[in-house]
Design a protein around this nucleic acid. Structure first.
Lengths: 107, 107
DNA sequence: CGATATACCTTGACAGGCGAGGTACTGCGC
DNA sequence: GCGCAGTACCTCGCCTGTCAAGGTATATCG
């Protein structure tokens, strides 16, 4: 929801990478998965999602390839790279850290 | 630290309000308090702090008055308003919510 | 045939964070 | 007496991430 959007700002990259840790995926599917795991409480806006893909690919944390487009709309699949995996683990630790800090500051 | 800066983005307002819940305070002191409670792990940049004050005052969540400047540099004190208190409690709940969402998305 | 769902993408505006720079006063050491 | 560190405030302008709005194309179902 829009309520929490500002607070989750900055976590988009990690959230996307988390899904790519499981398996290669594409934009639409990732977004559906996020909605599913949060029970509809959160979703990425398309513009946010695709600008994140561009950012992540430029950083070398993901790579992309076109899926088989013999049927249906073509899909651009993304795969996480080794450095992307390292970045993900690091981001998760930073999240744990940030969480502790914010919890300490909001008594 | 710069590491967590992006992740805490968006929590500046709540963090400031949290300190004003205890007592009226001024910029410099609030920042020192944040550094103290986080053991130096986090600090607000001055520009961030003062732009937040402007934002919060415009929103009617805090009010300001000049402290006694008979000695030392003058201080502008800030006090939280009733609507600011309501906003603070609401923000804290939203943080709990956002925390749950992010935890669910970063397994 | 039109609506809906899938699936992608771009543009441009906006807001928050912050580096860099500035002001002014006090107290300390040399 | 002078410079420096600490206290305390403030502004300007850039950068980055988000997202509303708009666009494209295909498959399915009634």
């Amino acid at each position: 929801m829009s309520l929490t959007a500002d607070l989750i700002r900055g976590h988009t990259d990690s959230i996307i990478l988390a899904h790519l840790m499981e398996k290669d995926s594409y934009g639409y599917e990732i977004n559906k998965a996020i909605q599913a795991t949060t029970g509809g409480d959160y979703e990425l806006k398309e513009a946010t999602l695709y600008s994140a893909f561009r950012r992540l690919e430029q950083a070398g944390w993901i790579s992309s390839y076109w899926g088989d487009a013999t049927i249906g709309a073509r899909r651009r699949y993304y795969a996480i790279t080794p450095s992307g995996q390292r970045f993900y683990y690091q981001s998760r630790e930073e999240w744990q850290h940030a969480k502790r800090i914010i919890d300490a500051l909001l008594p």
